[in-house]
Nucleic acid binder design. Structure first.
Length: 286
DNA sequence: AAACCGTGGCA
DNA sequence: TTGCCAAGGTT
């Protein structure tokens, strides 16, 4: 399986920005943050803008965190922008301005979890680690376990399974990236393209005639329309686009349910995504 | 462990 | 229209 994945990736893998030979580890870190739950197509233009403005950790660390949040625009989950800014500060203060290359140092950074730490170690530094994302978990569930879907994640078990599949160290980046790419392009959640899959011959799910999913299922996302998350999003949109302080009464217009709006504002204050500047006005963090 | 955290595209 | 999904992380 390993060599088939690697060969397929060499010929069919996309020329994504973070796969260019001159892409920096900082670029990789920024791209991985943006790619956490945001589709590739929406990340690409924002990544370019972000790296043009802040080409190094030191550059971002020298700007207010609110500028990072504003530049994040509508990518979603704006706490990622705050964490990325905090990463830049830590990298300058504790790692001499250079993105660290080993998993433990990477895991010490805010917003860097099991996936992102290993993705940086492997893709930016050529490390030999198991990278586990939703694509890889789906490929393994189908091809190796004969199941239709990956089910809920279990970090420890997932990492062990992927570690057992790794080829020799020098092939590790291509294999990890190839597995992700296969899940993104061929072994997709809906309508997988088994006819052109490089590992269809050995796929346990296909060879069992595509049985229904067995075992626990992924937990379903709560409805977004009318949710607290949407209310937070409405507040953040006002603050991002204002480029100045905004009063409580101005925020009143952005959401009909005042109790929910109150929860959104206090939650955002608690997260550090907005700041109180007077007793009734707010701004993005300085 | 399960809920929470944005936003937009697609079937 | 509604639900599912998207290179996750934190609590």
């Amino acid at each position: 399986m390993q060599q088939e994945i690697i060969d397929w990736f060499e010929t069919e893998g996309r020329d994504l920005p973070w796969r260019q030979p001159d892409f920096t580890p900082w670029g990789s870190l920024v791209s991985e943050f943006m790619l956490q739950q945001t589709p590739v197509a929406r990340v690409i233009p924002k990544l370019d803008e972000f790296l043009t403005r802040w080409p190094t950790p030191a550059a971002l660390a020298a700007s207010p965190s609110g500028d990072a949040v504003r530049a994040w625009a509508n990518l979603g989950y704006p706490r990622r922008a705050l964490w990325l800014h905090a990463c830049a500060v830590t990298i300058v203060d504790k790692f001499n301005g250079e993105v660290p290359s080993n998993v433990d140092d990477l895991l010490s950074l805010p917003g860097v979890g099991p996936y992102t730490a290993r993705a940086i170690a492997v893709f930016a530094f050529g490390g030999h680690e198991p990278v586990v994302d939703t694509n890889i978990r789906r490929v393994i569930a189908r091809h190796n376990q004969g199941n239709a879907d990956q089910g809920p994640p279990s970090t420890k078990r997932d990492l062990e399974v992927m570690a057992a599949l790794l080829p020799s160290p020098e092939l590790s980046p291509a294999f990890n990236a190839g597995m992700m790419e296969l899940g993104a392009l061929i072994c997709t959640a809906r309508n997988p393209q088994c006819e052109i899959c490089p590992i269809a011959r050995t796929c346990a799910w296909k060879n069992a005639s595509y049985p229904e999913h067995v075992g626990p299922k992924k937990t379903v996302q709560k409805k977004y329309e009318g949710s607290d998350r949407q209310a937070r999003g409405a507040v953040m949109k006002i603050l991002r686009e204002a480029h100045r302080t905004v009063t409580t009464s101005e925020l009143d217009d952005c959401w009909p349910d005042k109790a929910q709006l109150g929860r959104a504002i206090s939650g955002l204050l608690n997260d550090g995504l907005i700041e109180l500047v007077a007793d009734d006005s707010y701004q993005l963090p300085a």
